[in-house]
Design a protein around this nucleic acid. Structure first.
Lengths: 160, 160
DNA sequence: ATAACGAGGATAAGGAATGTCCGCGTTTAA
DNA sequence: TTAAACGCGGACATTCCTTATCCTCGTTAT
């Protein structure tokens, strides 16, 4: 049981897109190069983010990706949800129904409610942090110089 | 990202062991039959529960498994931990270190603290429910007859 | 028209979870 | 003392999800 690495990659990708000036876009290949991710697979992750409405895409020459919301309105959970989907961490396999020989309709699980609650607690923490709050952390003193270098890279690679 | 089915199976296995009288044990094969789980693989799960100190095993003829703690002292989290291990749900792949070209020693991740906290919240819910509280739920009115039948099955299959 | 980009399907490759097999040590019972 | 029933534990095979690659298509700027 482990979170996909695509979630972490996506968060940093969105942080890169957050460095773009208005109207500018960043090609998918540039992003995947910077993240040292496999280009073709990473495009799939980007499209999941598009489907989820987190980022937007522009086709054609000089196309690419950009944010589709304000950075304050994108939570880590939004990105998690885009990549991992709605499937819950736990789902009963109906063992209790077998044990107690219940009819299928009244199949039941002693753990479902508890696990549901646990998952809500987990997700609620992820909803607290936003792209904008993460960007602030990246601008802390100790990272400042490196972050500025990254921003310059974005300036070079962006189009339009 | 999904919880192993072994966790659910193990919870119900421990609930079965909870129906044993003192000093009695239940053979692993009987348990796996009742849970409709693959016998050899399920033995591996039982051994994980033994290693974790949740249950105890008795070798030899008339051997089997029994609880190693009081039902009130076994939480769902204990069983989760025994099966899934200590590996956390999220672990950074060090992308930020690459992005900012940090030295390896100062490698850093904007998400680790948040995810850690989320996981703590998640686990804390699992720590609330115990085998004894689950057993109570199984004795609710609507399950009472079926649960009694299950207890009789345990009486038949147990040894010593 | 062509080249650069995203969209999306089909399909491998890898790795973790699950499942199987076999030999071992221990204990009970004949 | 032998044999059978059980747990122990390692070495596999299988299955499934994630990751990765490839190829074709539609769109847009030059």
């Amino acid at each position: 049981m482990h979170m996909k690495t695509g979630v972490e990659q996506s968060v940093y990708a969105v942080l890169l897109l957050n460095m773009l000036p208005d109207k500018a876009v960043l090609p998918g290949e540039a992003i995947s190069q910077q993240l040292k991710a496999s280009p073709t697979y990473f495009q799939k992750l980007l499209r999941k983010l598009v489907s989820a409405g987190v980022i937007a895409s522009v086709p054609g020459v000089k196309g690419g990706f950009k944010l589709n919301k304000r950075a304050e309105d994108i939570t880590v959970y939004d990105i998690y949800l885009a990549i991992e989907g709605r499937q819950s961490l736990y789902s009963s396999s109906g063992i209790l129904g077998d044990l107690l020989e219940l009819e299928k309709e009244e199949s039941c699980c002693l753990l479902t409610d508890l696990m549901e609650e646990a998952e809500v607690a987990w997700k609620s923490v992820m909803k607290r942090e936003t792209i904008s709050s993460l960007a602030e952390k990246m601008n802390e003193q100790r990272f400042l110089l490196k972050t500025e270098a990254l921003q310059q890279w974005v300036q070079r690679k962006m189009v339009a």
